[in-house]
Design a protein around this nucleic acid. Structure first.
Lengths: 199, 199
DNA sequence: CTGCTTATTGTCCTTTAGTCCAATGGCGTA
DNA sequence: TACGCCATTGGACTAAAGGACAATAAGCAG
């Protein structure tokens, strides 16, 4: 069970942090007494931030860097300093939880953009960890087809035209998809299907 | 200027292929006379598909594997056979064009899920190719804040509450964002901001 | 034959999204 | 002082999204 600590100036917060981790602590001074069971969410501000990351990770804490403006240089710098994750500070709770889970398991978490760059930079495709796609497996083939078209940015009318069915049928399938995947609308469907980063 | 050729059974097509590449050719038999200026979009069906990929790439064609159901195993297999990309066959034209551009430039293109796995599997973070974020740079700070919250799955009401402004103001900012980023609604905003893969 | 699941479709309704037109105020610059 | 940009907000409107209730038909398993 990881203990979460958010280290950021008092005037820069997000109520999502407590939504994701109700028992998390807030601090506007760098924490010093932390260990392997702690996850420190550190808002990047200046060069000193990277020093904090280095110090915190060297004494065993898992550090996740939060940013207001994502950039590959900043991400790389945070990761090189020892951070295990790099995420926008306004990310939705689901993303924060996902980051925490990945990091708690010893993994690393980055947004899609940065991943793209990493993959393109990788000369060889490394053996991939298989992630279960349980969510999509519970959809019928027709639901899946509708979901994918919607997640690609299409309106119900466009999906209907593409699959040669009525808009009403599209809505019926979508409602079923929403219920099965536990999302409330097409916007969140997109996020779930793409494992989109909180922006 | 690359020549595009879609290799798939006659009854499995997508009108988006021709939307993305109006002069593309369609074929339900494996093409044999191809070269370095050709991009072959091959719909994965059976084990023979991977043999086709191997043969086509070995004679110089760039091959992009298309699938009906994305899976990491299939992706890895296609890439190991020599494919330069792996994408859903119903991907929207913009994605198809993006894939083509990346592949034409000698790069490799994968969906977000697969990238995640690759990054997690990568022991070291490789030097990243810097991609310009010109789009977001043209937004004002307030527009950016609204855009990010919407792209994270929030409704206009929720964004208004989060930023302590009215829903009307959120709509005003969103309209400006849509115009600047050349998207038509929040769904496509999500896709643009996350460089989401066509699903 | 029965029951279940899936696919499809309709009507009706409320809520949300997005656009058009309009306006005020603060701030920075010429 | 005047101008332009940004942030904010309102009213009014149309279109789209999503849900509730309802229905038929096909395929499959028991």
């Amino acid at each position: 069970m990881m203990q979460h600590l958010f280290f950021a100036p008092a005037h820069i917060t997000s109520n999502r942090w407590l939504q994701a981790f109700p028992s998390a602590q807030m601090s506007d001074v760098v924490p010093t007494r932390v260990g392997a069971s702690d996850v420190v969410w550190l808002l990047l501000r200046d060069d000193l931030s990277f020093t904090h990351i280095k110090n915190l990770s060297s004494i065993g804490a898992r550090v996740i860097a939060m940013t207001a403006i994502e950039s590959p240089q900043e991400a790389r710098r945070a990761l090189e300093a020892g951070a295990s994750g790099y995420v926008h500070y306004l990310a939705i709770p689901q993303v924060l939880e996902q980051v925490a889970q990945v990091v708690a398991a010893g993994g690393m978490w980055l947004g899609a953009d940065l991943m793209r760059q990493l993959v393109l930079a990788t000369a060889r495709i490394l053996p991939a960890v298989e992630t279960p796609q349980a969510d999509l497996s519970q959809l019928t083939s027709r639901e899946k087809a509708v979901a994918e078209l919607v997640a690609a940015g299409n309106s119900n009318k466009e999906v209907a035209r593409e699959l040669d069915i009525t808009e009403r049928t599209v809505k019926a399938h979508l409602s079923a998809v929403f219920a099965k995947l536990q999302v409330r609308d097409r916007l969140q469907l997109v996020l779930v299907l793409s494992n989109n980063t909180g922006a």
